[in-house]
Design a protein around this nucleic acid. Structure first.
Lengths: 201, 201, 201, 201
DNA sequence: ATTTAATCGAGACGGTACGTCATGTCTTCGG
DNA sequence: CCGAAGACATGACGTACCGTCTCGATTAAAT
């Protein structure tokens, strides 16, 4: 208890180079606030104060508040979404959807993701970032479907984008509203109905 | 929507009554601003100023900004969603989905609806109101599906709630992101795939 | 302690005739609030609520808030200020000043008077009322001095208005600032010095 | 007056320093509005807008509106009140009172001073500031009287505080009510009567 | 070894919107 | 028509964040 209670960060200056410790402190603070936030919007001031950082240091490295939030989220998230490839569409799709649903279920980042999504509704910049953030996963899913169609497991004229949007539509709809579960059973029912509904003949 | 059903006071209410002109002026102003709003959040000050009304008059009757916006939206909206009933599920569903998609396409309220949805992402109170607002339509769709299932057009164990969420999931997902169309062709493809995917084999 | 303001007044309506009970209730409420008020401005809403009366009933009978306050004050105050007349100026003046000072000392209306004076600083209407309210006392003092001058106890060219203002100037100055006492000893010193001056004899 | 003497922070103050231009702009605006104000209360919004400054910047540096006003007043006012010292009490007192009265007569700050006094009636914080503001002048007058008493021009038991209060009592009483002049003749009559009294001969 | 320059913490700045409060007027009802 | 209740337009209040800016201190790279 040597300091006055404000405890200045022990983090040292790094001079002209970017201070990686400050960088991490900001992401930590953002993630922490996002996780705790119960719908309350997270403010830049709060992030900076929590991180023990000047506001300018935040603005120096991120163009908008949303960028910080999303960065905080993706920093920890498993970025590579391989997309299962068992050779059978139904199995692949079941796995993919179940994994997607599951990630939102017990992860500590679920609350953070929800908050970021809500912020994105207001902040066009963040919305764009979200778009590219989700694009990876959408592409993985589309590829999975494409492989299935090539194997003849889907009709040639199946609207792959619509199938993708059904998966992610259901996902976000339930994730944000929380009116119905995103459990494995649901995932499998959804996957099955999508395969059956878009099968050739 | 504006009267939340709370019990009227036992005393028959002396005092000046609500000024219906002011009430309407506020809703008009809100709707007007929502429609014009290009992503910019609509402020209470602006609503009150446009309506020629004191801010307090707004706060007297609505608990949050979002409530005003949603009220403005629903005030004009056709509230009874009959749900087509032709005796054939595929036709009914096609019509329902196409109608839903279409409403969001060229209506002047589309912009307003988008704004309200964005506000709802931040305002828990408005989110709740949105939930009851959409419940009517969800129920209509569910009934439509239920009728189809009773006629044997869907499997007995079809997850009706999931189908509903597929329709509205796709709808909101595309409506808010705008990355893909919500045209009639899409509506029919979606309806068809849902029927096919959940048919008793 | 029977009227907590929550209970609807048992006072019956009197139809077209002015309701004297309401009138009194308003003055009571005003006086009560004035006495309790510790510098906080007394609001019309508060008076009306405390009196169990509609705001309009207040505005119907008094032109401004200040008028109510002053009326409340004078309603109880002893209006006739006889002005002592013993035949000796010094004695008369001592008595008058001591009485004036004393009234402000232990009366429950002291706090009320202070509040009204403060309100008068803002409200020109109330300021005018205060002027006529104090005029009576000023005149009584001036008459007292005039009688003394006619008896030769004051110089023929003595500025009676200035003497009056010295008395009331000191009174209000100390009454409102409270930096020095308004006790009998002070009153007598003031009276004496006005007659004799402060020169070493 | 603007620096209330509170201990400067031990840390040599990092962060941006107070913008002196904004500081002055606020005082300028306040003084300008006070002088123009014809009884109308001056609002913080108006001060901020006139100064081209955010409201928060005003609130950051002054605890209450009154503090700004008084600060604006004292910022320009001649703070050192030397108090004449001719060696003769009557002359000194005449000069002091006449100067005091005169200052309130044709100065452009008279209107401002009146407004501040009125505000002080409502705002306890400002009242306290006014007290310290006037203390300087009161002390100067008291010293002047004290010198006279030591020279034997006043009785040993003369109540100096009471004399001071008679001067300032008359001053404020007439200044605020405006029912009687504060001219040089009055000042000299007051000074004389305080020294000599109003007795014939 | 000395500049030079970018980063850091801190926090003041001009703004915009918020939600609350009091004012004095008005409208509706029951007596 | 009176009195209660209370809605109304107005406008000031003090607070919260925003994103920009300006400090003095720190420290690595360029001289």
């Amino acid at each position: 208890m040597q300091e006055t209670g404000q405890t200045p960060p022990a983090r040292p200056h790094t001079g002209r180079r970017r201070n990686e410790a400050a960088h991490q402190a900001i992401l930590d603070a953002a993630l922490h606030l996002l996780a705790d936030s119960d719908g309350t919007p997270v403010t830049i001031d709060a992030i900076a104060r929590t991180a023990g950082v000047g506001k300018q240091t935040v603005y120096r490295w991120w163009p908008s508040k949303g960028a910080v939030l999303l960065d905080a989220l993706t920093d920890r998230a498993d970025q590579d979404v391989p997309g299962p490839d068992t050779g059978t569409l139904r199995t692949d799709l079941r796995t993919f959807v179940a994994t997607t649903f599951d990630a939102a279920q017990h992860s500590t980042t679920a609350s953070a993701l929800r908050t970021v999504a809500r912020e994105a509704a207001r902040d066009p910049h963040l919305a764009e970032l979200m778009r590219t953030f989700t694009a990876t996963r959408r592409t993985a899913l589309r590829d999975l479907l494409s492989r299935g169609r090539e194997r003849g497991e889907l009709a040639d004229d199946a609207d792959l984008d619509l199938i993708v949007d059904q998966v992610y539509g259901v996902f976000w709809y339930r994730f944000l509203l929380g009116h119905a579960p995103l459990d494995t059973a649901t995932a499998e029912r959804l996957a099955d109905s999508l395969v059956t509904g878009n099968t050739a003949d």
